[in-house]
């Protein structure tokens, strides 16, 4: 039961963060929101008894791809403002 309540909250939070990521005008906020979506998805994977996938998502989906987004944004922003 506790897992159902937890996963309902995680799912709602993931959806809200996804909408924030698509709708916001600030690119930094959008990238951080994408990272948060991945991080909370990895907690959901753990509830679904998939620790391998959870580790991969936490290391690659929310760690490295956020960093790559920020590298590229950094290269581009220098000239914009």
């Amino acid at each position: 039961m506790i897992y159902i309540i937890l996963s309902v909250f995680l799912g709602l939070f993931i959806m809200v963060m996804a909408i924030v990521a698509v709708q916001t005008d600030n690119l930094k906020v959008a990238i951080i929101a994408t990272g948060i979506v991945s991080l909370f998805a990895s907690i959901m994977f753990l509830i679904y008894a998939a620790p391998d996938v959870a580790m991969t998502e936490a290391a690659i989906g929310s760690g490295l791809s956020t960093i790559i987004f920020f590298y590229v944004l950094n290269k581009i922003r220098k000239s914009n403002d």
Binding site: A18, A21, V22, L27, A30, I31, T34, V37, S38, G61, S65, F69, V72, L73
Partner: peptide
């Protein structure tokens, strides 16, 4: 960048 973020989602 927002389009690529959508692909990631």
């Amino acid at each position: 960048i927002k389009i690529i973020i959508s692909f990631a989602l």
